[in-house]
Computed example of a mutant assay.
Amino acid sequence: MSALFRFPGALRRDPEVEAWFARSDDPVRAMVRPWFEKLRASGPDVRELMHDGRPTLCAGDAAFAYVDAFTAHASIGFFQGAQLADPARLLQGAGKRMRHVKLPWGEPVDEAALEALIAAAYRDMQAREAAEE
């Protein structure tokens, strides 16, 4: 049994994801949009869908990240985040696999460290998929 969370129906561009970001009354969604775009740009095999009400990104069909917006912060979550190196200590959570980065409204973020986590999460998921083939 695979430890990967797979979504064979993920699309290159999902209209439901666009609709989620289009809510004009939610500035936190607008704040997390550039990070979603960085996740989308991780590689040519990135696909997306809505899962549990959150825009979710896959490497191929294996989920590697999601974004979410709350009242005072946004989150970027990584499905295998517990295994990622995090020298800047951005990752939060205590689950067996998942971790997230909280982006509080109006506060700066260590952009270089977050970009490194995004790249690492994508590479990690590609390696996990290759190991299962």
Rank of each mutant, 00 (worst) to 15 (best):
L4I: 00
G60K: 05
L39S: 07
H73E: 00
P44K: 05
R97I: 11
R97G: 10
M98D: 11
A69W: 13
L117A: 09
R89I: 09
Q126V: 13
F21W: 02
K102M: 12
E16C: 15
G60T: 07
H73N: 05
D25N: 14
F64K: 05
S75I: 02
D86V: 12
W20V: 12
A88L: 08
A85V: 04
P8E: 01
T71F: 12
F5W: 08
A112T: 06
K96N: 02
D52N: 13
I118R: 07
V32N: 02
D52E: 09
G43Y: 11
F79Q: 03
F70Y: 15
K96W: 01
V32S: 06
A127G: 03
F70S: 14
R40F: 01
R89H: 14
E48V: 08
D61I: 12
E132R: 09
E133F: 15
E132C: 13
A65S: 14
R123E: 05
A82T: 05
R99Q: 10
F5L: 12
A62P: 15
G53I: 07
R29T: 03
A41F: 11
M1T: 12
L4T: 04
I118T: 04
C58F: 01
G9L: 14
F64S: 09
R97W: 15
A74V: 00
H100Y: 15
R13K: 12
D26F: 06
A131M: 07
A130K: 07
R23S: 11
P8D: 02
T71W: 10
G60Q: 04
F78S: 05
Q126A: 05
A113C: 08
A85H: 05
A62E: 06
A127N: 03
E16W: 15
G81N: 01
D14M: 14
A69V: 10
D25T: 13
Y66Q: 03
A19Q: 09
R33Q: 04
S42Y: 14
G77N: 04
F21P: 01
F70L: 15
L57K: 09
S42G: 15
L114C: 06
R40K: 03
Q92A: 14
A112Y: 00
M1I: 13
Q83K: 08
G43E: 06
E133Y: 12
A30G: 07
F21I: 00
A85S: 12
R23K: 11
H73Q: 08
A85I: 00
P27W: 02
R40M: 10
E18W: 09
L4H: 02
A130M: 10
F7N: 11
E37C: 14
R13C: 06
D26Q: 09
R47L: 04
W20S: 10
G9V: 03
A85D: 11
A82K: 05
A112N: 01
Y122I: 04
D25R: 13
E129D: 02
A112W: 03
R29L: 00
P8Y: 03
D26P: 03
P8H: 01
L114N: 03
I76C: 07
M1V: 13
H51P: 07
D52K: 13
L39I: 15
L114S: 04
F79C: 08
A30F: 01
L117N: 10
A85G: 06
L90G: 08
R128Q: 04
A19H: 10
A41Q: 10
